[in-house]
Amino acid sequence: MICANCGGKIHYKKPCSDCGIEYMDMLKGITHPEMKRIFKRMEKIQSEHGDLNLETSLMACELVNSSLIVACRLGDEGLEIVFLPGPKGRQFIALCTDMDEYGKCFDDLIPMTNPWKHVLDLLTEDVEGFVINPLGECCFIGRGLLDEYFLND
């Protein structure tokens, strides 16, 4: 896994091999108050005006520079991502902006943090998108938004 502090390699419950930051200390340091503020504004603007172009662009810029927490479990092949079921057999990946949000959703799973560019690498054909902070200030990022802002370079 990638260290959110320096970009080096880090392993679950072991310090980063490059900067030495402890795994749990790294997770405590990830906060995205600006992203949470944008989520609130998006919800308000959507309900009042139905136009999210500016807010969506701001969120895309914030995500590009973010590290997010993914819920994993220990499986036969090592760490496996936990997917949320969706309609028509599609799956979603739950992402959390910080450990407070992670704690609202997952208490018996392993938190794994990755920069946004590595989070995008988790997408497969069966993954419809991401749900950020599923039980908090929630934001859904579906394939349409991902294609428009992140996947068509």
Rank of each mutant, 00 (worst) to 15 (best):
T113G: 12
C6D: 05
D51H: 10
H32F: 04
G86L: 09
L151G: 10
D153E: 15
C96S: 14
I2G: 00
P87L: 10
L63N: 00
K40T: 08
G78I: 06
L84F: 12
R37G: 13
H118C: 02
Y102E: 08
G129S: 13
D121G: 10
K44I: 14
M59Y: 06
C61R: 14
F39P: 00
L109H: 10
G89H: 08
R73A: 09
M42W: 00
R90C: 00
T97Q: 07
D108K: 12
I141W: 00
M99E: 14
H11S: 14
S66Q: 04
G86M: 04
D126P: 00
L122M: 13
K88R: 11
E128F: 03
L68D: 08
Y102A: 04
G29H: 01
N152R: 15
P134D: 09
E80G: 10
R37M: 10
T97N: 08
D121I: 01
N65W: 00
G20Q: 05
I132D: 03
D153N: 13
T124W: 02
L74G: 05
S57W: 06
D100N: 14
K36H: 07
L84A: 12
I81T: 15
F92A: 10
N53W: 01
M24A: 09
P134T: 06
Y149P: 01
E55S: 06
I21V: 15
G29R: 04
L135H: 03
Y149G: 05
N152D: 10
D25E: 15
C138Q: 12
L120A: 08
E80M: 15
C61Q: 13
I110H: 01
Y12Q: 10
L74M: 13
M24T: 10
Y23E: 09
G142L: 03
Y12L: 13
N53S: 14
L79W: 02
I69A: 01
L27E: 07
D147R: 08
L63A: 06
L145W: 02
G75A: 10
D100V: 11
K36P: 02
T113M: 04
P85M: 08
I69G: 02
S57Y: 08
C138S: 14
L27Y: 06
M1Y: 02
P87C: 01
L145P: 01
I132E: 03
V64W: 02
Y102H: 05
K104N: 11
N152Q: 09
R90K: 15
L135T: 04
P15T: 12
S47K: 13
C96F: 07
F130D: 03
L145M: 15
N65Q: 13
K117N: 11
W116R: 04
I69W: 01
I81L: 02
L52Q: 10
E43R: 13
E77I: 08
I93R: 07
C96K: 01
K44D: 11
C16G: 05
Y102W: 11
H32I: 05
F140E: 08
H118W: 03
R90G: 05
Y12C: 11
S57Q: 13
G78C: 05
G75W: 00
E77M: 07
F39Q: 01
V70L: 06
T31C: 04
D126W: 00
M99Y: 09
F39H: 06
R41Y: 00
D100G: 12
F140T: 14
L120N: 04
E34I: 09
C105T: 15
D76G: 05
D76P: 07
I10G: 02
G144T: 12
E55V: 05
G89V: 08
H11A: 11
